[in-house]
């Protein structure tokens, strides 16, 4: 038997070729795939899946407890609410700080950008595809646990699945809207920071640092506007501001009754808007409650809701502008 080597030569391509939208969609797909570790080593898959598992645990626990309690009243056993679940968690911030640099920095560091921009897309297309990819990832990361919670609660509810769905119908729009607001916000900020460097570790540290620092600064400013009152002064007598009820922990050496509550009363302050990790949560409250949560230092602030939306939009626009400027060279 004799072998043969065939030179198949070059075959021209006569299939469909898309334009900018097609290139943009491809960049979106490739970015999502990269972030989730598809077609990459198992090490790249561990972080996103582990973090997703971590954020899903509260939903599973909540559903499990309701189930074990015989599915009794869906509202009496509520470890976590849908509103609280659209929220800040270390796992979510860690996911953002890991993922945004991973889909942005290697293009710059490995000098892939010239190859990407030699394709039929513009700098704006690149930015939009990356932002959409990151937003989709953060949305999925936040939405999957909510789905587990909702579907689980629905299935174990003693009142029946349909009844549960009907009673909680409002979360079917509140959750996606609030998560979208949160996902867009975190994504554009994280990508804007990641666009400044080619090193993932630096970008990730900067993202985490920015969230931590703004959170700390906001907390310090809010604390300066806070007054700690004893139980004897009813907080209702105070005008405006938020009220945190803090049970005393029975600190060693304290003569205070550990079961007594003390109240931290805030003068209305916009300080929480400085907190980049927390700002989307104020937007979330606007979606769920229609107003600023009464337990936050912004409560009672004139036009607090409007102010929150303006700051949110300003930060999102600023981050977008930064991204567009960063990749403007290839725009027509």
């Amino acid at each position: 038997m004799t072998g043969a080597i065939y030179d198949r030569g070059y075959r021209p391509y006569d299939g469909a070729v898309g334009g900018r939208f097609s290139a943009q969609s491809a960049l979106f797909r490739l970015s999502v795939r990269r972030a989730l570790g598809w077609r990459r080593s198992w090490r790249q898959k561990v972080a996103p899946l582990a973090l997703l598992a971590v954020v899903t645990v509260p939903a599973i626990v909540n559903v499990g407890i309701v189930y074990l309690s015989g599915g009794a009243s869906d509202t009496s056993i509520e470890i976590i609410t849908y509103r609280d679940y659209v929220g800040i968690s270390s796992a979510l911030l860690l996911f953002v700080a890991l993922t945004a640099p991973d889909i942005m920095c290697p293009d710059r560091r490995q000098r892939v950008l010239p190859l990407i921009f030699a394709r039929p897309l513009t700098g704006a297309d690149y930015v939009i595809a990356k932002v959409l990819a990151m937003t989709a990832l953060v949305f999925g990361f936040s939405f999957i646990p909510q789905m587990v919670l909702f579907l689980g609660q629905m299935l174990v509810s003693a009142d029946g699945a349909l009844r549960y769905a009907r009673d909680n119908a409002e979360v079917l729009w509140q959750v996606p809207v609030a998560i979208t607001a949160l996902a867009v916000f975190y994504s554009v900020i994280a990508l804007a920071i990641s666009s400044l460097t080619g090193r993932r570790i630096i970008a990730g540290s900067c993202i985490g640092g920015l969230f931590l620092i703004t959170s700390a600064v906001s907390g310090i400013i809010a604390a300066n506007s806070a007054t700690v009152l004893s139980r004897e002064v009813p907080p209702e007598q105070l005008f405006g501001g938020g009220v945190d009820r803090v049970p005393l922990a029975g600190e060693p050496g304290s003569n205070e009754n550990p079961f007594e509550e003390r109240f931290i009363v805030y003068d209305p302050t916009p300080a929480p808007l400085i907190n980049l990790a927390g700002l989307p949560l104020t937007v979330r409250d606007l979606v769920f409650l229609g107003q600023i949560d009464e337990d936050t230092p912004m409560s009672g602030l004139d036009n607090g809701g409007l102010f929150t939306i303006v700051v949110y939009l300003a930060i999102v626009s600023g981050s977008f502008t930064m991204l567009f400027l960063r990749y403007r060279q290839v725009d027509p």
Partner: peptide, 21 residues
Amino acid sequence: CLPLDQSAADIVASFGELSGL
């Protein structure tokens, strides 16, 4: 200019997709 952690097949196919295929 190549992503070093990907296979040649993945890289070339990715750029094919980016070209509209």
